[in-house]
Amino acid sequence: MNVFFLVFFCNSVTAVKHYLEYFSTATSGFPEFPEMMGMANVDRVYVGSCSMVIHRTEPRDKLIKKFIEENAEHIRWYYVECQENQGFFNSIIDGLMKRTNQTGGKHVFQQYCGCEWDDETGKTKGFDRYAYDGEDFLRLDLQKHEWTALSEKALVTKLSWENDDSVKHSEYFFTIQCPDWLKTYLAYAREYIHRTVFPSVSLLQKSSSSLISCHATGFFPDTVDLFWMKDGEEFHEGVEKGEILPNDDESFQMSVHLNTSSLTPEDWKHFSCVFQFSGSRGNITVSLDKTKIRSNHDKNKNSARVNTGSSSRNHWGAGAALFLLVPITIWIFVCKRKNKDLHVDEEPMM
């Protein structure tokens, strides 16, 4: 199981409302799929990983390292949660399968929970929802102090969770502990989110007849735009824009594709690709030039030069790698319905 600890950042330090959100997914019957996956968001931006707690991985950012050093008890709490979450979710799936007379098959149990904090009014709000096999299952009603069954399958679970007093534990976590943690994370995040990391921008083409991709990777934050221009004006005809995707190093990547099939060689010099941060952080412009394009059909050329001792085969290796999108890992960090006291005596076994 891969689980992730928080890496703290948010969209804007000027935002009035802030959010700490956990998305959880447990699976059964998917041999090719992890049993537990997860994602945590701060201010609705994907955040980092619990693997650094379990495996004592050195954090990339000095602020994350500082947080870990200054919040040892907090990290130990997360360590225990990471260890226990898989068993907790699997037991729920097993119980649901028995109650619904399911002896096998593929099943998915999901949770969305967290809290929000208004830094202007000071008001907070918690939330906790579950789904089973794609259908709404349970919702925590903090005002009525009860679990609300969203399907008939959830009635037994609702009664069981209310009988073992989980509502009080959940109320404490989502109304007190979660908002306190969110404020702490934001305090560490404020310097972190102001950093600007410019990307590597390349022109890529799978074959001579394919679209030409302008690919930017390694940038931060994700408030950017990437577009084609013709004679200094933004160009949209024959252009396909991809989504901004996370890399595995807390940076982002994006591509925008241009159809050049109807362009003459003379037309090429009028086009350029522009990477642009929002605000006035600066731009990167790459002219549409055939000599700058990295393409799959270059592989044969470079392979032919291997025996001559040319270093171009290394150039091909770097270029080909850019065609492979960095895998988007969305592993889940789980909010359990039973909150534990923050103090944990057990030391992480790392």
Rank of each mutant, 00 (worst) to 15 (best):
291 T>P: 07
332 I>W: 00
17 K>D: 01
73 E>I: 00
113 C>V: 07
312 S>L: 14
181 W>L: 03
72 A>S: 07
197 V>R: 04
273 C>G: 04
340 K>M: 05
14 T>M: 11
220 F>M: 05
334 V>Q: 05
127 F>A: 09
103 T>I: 08
55 H>A: 08
269 K>A: 07
223 T>W: 14
289 D>I: 03
143 Q>S: 09
121 T>L: 06
329 T>S: 09
75 I>N: 03
340 K>R: 06
300 N>I: 09
112 Y>P: 01
267 D>L: 09
47 V>S: 03
150 L>K: 13
23 F>V: 01
247 N>M: 09
344 V>H: 10
308 T>I: 13
298 D>Y: 13
169 H>V: 00
331 W>A: 01
254 M>L: 14
203 L>K: 00
41 N>V: 02
190 R>V: 11
4 F>W: 12
154 A>G: 04
103 T>Y: 13
231 D>G: 00
178 C>Q: 08
70 E>F: 14
273 C>R: 06
161 W>Y: 15
95 G>C: 02
234 E>V: 07
323 F>E: 12
194 H>S: 12
64 I>F: 14
121 T>F: 13
34 P>V: 01
320 A>T: 14
224 V>K: 03
239 V>I: 14
289 D>E: 09
242 G>W: 01
168 K>R: 07
346 E>I: 06
306 V>I: 08
247 N>T: 14
98 K>L: 13
99 R>C: 06
25 T>L: 08
50 C>P: 01
232 G>N: 04
341 D>V: 00
239 V>K: 14
256 V>K: 08
310 S>P: 00
312 S>F: 15
272 S>R: 12
44 R>I: 05
345 D>N: 04
196 T>L: 09
53 V>Q: 02
295 S>L: 10
337 R>S: 03
29 G>N: 05
146 E>S: 13
263 L>M: 10
111 Q>G: 05
63 L>H: 14
10 C>F: 15
105 G>R: 03
252 F>S: 01
262 S>D: 11
192 Y>G: 03
35 E>A: 03
44 R>T: 03
166 S>K: 11
76 R>H: 05
230 K>I: 02
102 Q>G: 04
221 P>G: 08
76 R>F: 08
158 K>N: 09
247 N>L: 10
162 E>D: 07
257 H>C: 07
280 S>A: 15
344 V>E: 05
168 K>W: 10
159 L>I: 08
274 V>R: 10
228 W>E: 02
57 T>Y: 15
213 S>I: 01
190 R>Y: 15
207 S>A: 09
319 G>C: 08
56 R>V: 01
267 D>T: 01
86 Q>C: 02
